[in-house]
Design a protein around this nucleic acid. Structure first.
Lengths: 192, 192
DNA sequence: GTAATTTCTTAATCTAGTTCAATGTTTTTA
DNA sequence: TAAAAACATTGAACTAGATTAAGAAATTAC
């Protein structure tokens, strides 16, 4: 149950057995059925969730109901709305399970307790935000500077497993194109 | 000299006189002429700089030499490549002064010393990254979900002072359009 | 102060990507 | 297991924005 998550945090810092035991004790396992919401716009995000099993997506809805996928998250990733979580403000995001999923969550209290007794976790969380920021900077760059076809090719290469698991309309949204156009890109590429 | 920066960090946490004195002692003032580079791709970013006066931009160059502006930063903002700084990896970014500028910088050593003696600064830096992340999430959303004209209107409204100070070709790049198209948007809007 | 360079604008042409609509395919539900 | 719903594909018509080119305005540099 905690094997994966302990390996995950150990990448950033070597923790003692005692620290990891505390960490694991504070984590709350939660299951979500496919299509269940971990978070909806307007709610305050009260979790940082590590995905043990499953796949979730984080998206925004605009006024006309058009959805924009910001992230897909699968096993060994964390998911949350950090601004909402840390500042206890209402979120703009929807976080929805795309498969039956199992996650391990911290809430503001357990996170605080963890940081109090094992302050080295500060580093883990700071690096998590930072990695996130890098990912976003890359995406912005690729959406400004590359064609949809290049973005699609990059995506397949970088996240082949997500490609398998997620419907094309969600991938289209992530890539910033319509499902119809993604379909055309695919038709073109399968001809080559 | 330190008035603005002390006010800036105090937003996130109330520091003692002693902590602020240490902070100020560790900061190194640096001046850059217009067009000077604070950082170039391939270098390791060894600073986090607070802008006391001036304006800088952070951008990427692709293979064909096309530039993509990720950020403009003016007075009261911090600028750095955090991934490069924190992991001491080569940066992909250029950070260039757009006006004669004056900044206060921390380097990895002074930052470490600061955090060692005044660990509450951890919070400041974590929140800085996080604010950054929010900004990026918003930009990605607006570039996927809005038209260039809407983005331009939003930009003027949100950053009227940057609009005045920065050339249109840089703003075009930030908005993800060509300078020619930005010109058309402006012509259209001034007719209304 | 003027030549040189860079920036901004305008217009014509072109294209990557959208929209709409129809049809087939897979998944969900009961 | 059949009906309903959601998803994927294809094609025709359209449009937001790119590209190219050329002249006007502003900055920069000597």
């Amino acid at each position: 149950m905690f094997e994966q998550i302990n390996k995950n945090v150990t990448r950033y810092h070597t923790f003692s057995k005692k620290e990891l035991d505390l960490f694991n004790k504070l984590l709350k396992p939660v299951k979500y059925e496919k299509k269940a919401f971990l978070l909806q716009a307007g709610e305050v995000c009260n979790f940082e969730a590590f995905i043990n099993k499953g796949c979730v997506m984080t998206y925004l809805l605009n006024e006309e109901g058009k959805e924009t996928v910001l992230y897909f998250s699968i096993e060994d990733w964390w998911v949350s709305d950090l601004s909402s979580f840390n500042e206890q403000r209402k979120s703009d995001f929807y976080i929805q399970s795309l498969e039956d999923s199992e996650v391990l969550t911290l809430n503001p209290q357990t996170k605080e307790e963890l940081l109090f007794h094992a302050p080295s976790f500060e580093r883990v969380f700071r690096l998590m935000v930072q990695k996130n920021l890098s990912v976003m900077q890359n995406r912005l760059h690729s959406i400004i500077a590359k064609t949809a076809e290049q973005r699609y090719t990059d995506f397949i290469k970088r996240y082949p497993s997500i490609m398998q698991r997620v419907s094309q309309r969600h991938i289209a949204s992530y890539l910033g194109v319509t499902p119809e156009f993604l379909s055309k890109i695919r038709a073109k590429q399968s001809k080559l």
